[in-house]
Simulated scan of single mutants.
Amino acid sequence: YIIVNEEMPEVADYLRSRQTDSAPQLRLTVRSTAGSMESFRELARSMDRTRPFCLLTVDSIFRPEEFREFIARFEADPEADGYMAVTSYVADEKPLYVATGPENDITGFLDHPLPDTRYISGGIYALRPEAFGLLDDCAAAGKTRMRDYQRSLVAAGMRLKAWPFSKIIDADHSSDLREAEIFLSKENQS
C-alpha cells in the first residue's frame, strides 16, 4: 500500500510503470494529505486490519540488512506490540526524540531531548493490529500529527521496542539527496 502526493504525479506514474505480473500487487493511492498520520489513515482504509504491518512514513535511506533484521526481530518477538526504527544520527530540522529504558523499551516520544536521550525516530514502524484502533481514536480526538499517534501508543500501555539503525536519512530536501548519494556510494564500496 503506497500513498503518493497529488503534486508529484510522476512518482505515481513511475510506480505504475514498475508493476509486473510477477511482483506483488501495488495498491496505490494518489492523494495529498496534511501529514503522515492522515496518510496512514488513508492507507488504513484498505489495509487488512487483522495482520501486523510495517509502515514507512518518510522517504528513508537506510541499510537493507538493518531493515531485514528489524523485521525479523519484530516477527520473532510476540511480546512486543511494536518495533520502532531509531537512529542516533540526527540530520532533521524537527526530529522526534525517542526516550528509552534499559532494554530499549520506548518510554516516550519527545519534541526536545532529555539529557540521556540517545535516539530519534526513523519513521519506520512495525506494529500489531491493535495499533489500528488507536489510530481511529486519535483521529476522533482531533489529533493530526504522527507524533501524537506515537505518543498515544505509549499512553495506551503498548510495549514498543526501539530498534537502532546505524543511519537513516529522511530524503525530503535536495541537500538530503546528496548526503544519501554519499551514504549509498560508501555502502556499495563495502
Rank of each mutant, 00 (worst) to 15 (best):
E38A: 14
M8Y: 08
P113L: 11
R41F: 02
A126K: 00
P115S: 09
V11A: 14
E10V: 11
A85R: 00
F70Q: 02
T20F: 04
P24E: 13
D77F: 03
T20W: 04
S166P: 03
V90M: 06
P115Q: 05
V154E: 09
M8P: 01
T20D: 07
T144A: 13
D105V: 01
P78A: 10
I71M: 15
V11L: 14
S36H: 01
T33C: 12
I2L: 12
Q19P: 00
T87M: 10
I182S: 15
E79F: 01
D81N: 08
R51Q: 15
G108Q: 05
R159P: 00
E79A: 08
E93K: 11
D13Y: 03
E10H: 14
V90Y: 05
P113S: 11
E187R: 08
E42P: 00
I71F: 11
L153V: 05
W163S: 02
A139H: 07
S17K: 14
L110G: 02
R16H: 03
E130N: 08
Q189K: 14
G157C: 05
F132D: 03
Y149E: 03
M158A: 04
L56I: 11
T117L: 11
Y89V: 04
S22C: 14
N188S: 13
F70L: 11
T87G: 04
E93I: 08
G108Y: 02
T107E: 14
E93Q: 13
K167D: 03
W163M: 15
E6S: 10
N104M: 12
D59S: 11
R41E: 09
A23Q: 09
D21R: 11
A44T: 07
R31N: 13
V154I: 15
R73H: 08
F132P: 02
V58M: 06
V98D: 01
K94A: 14
A12F: 07
C54E: 06
G101Q: 09
P24W: 05
L127F: 04
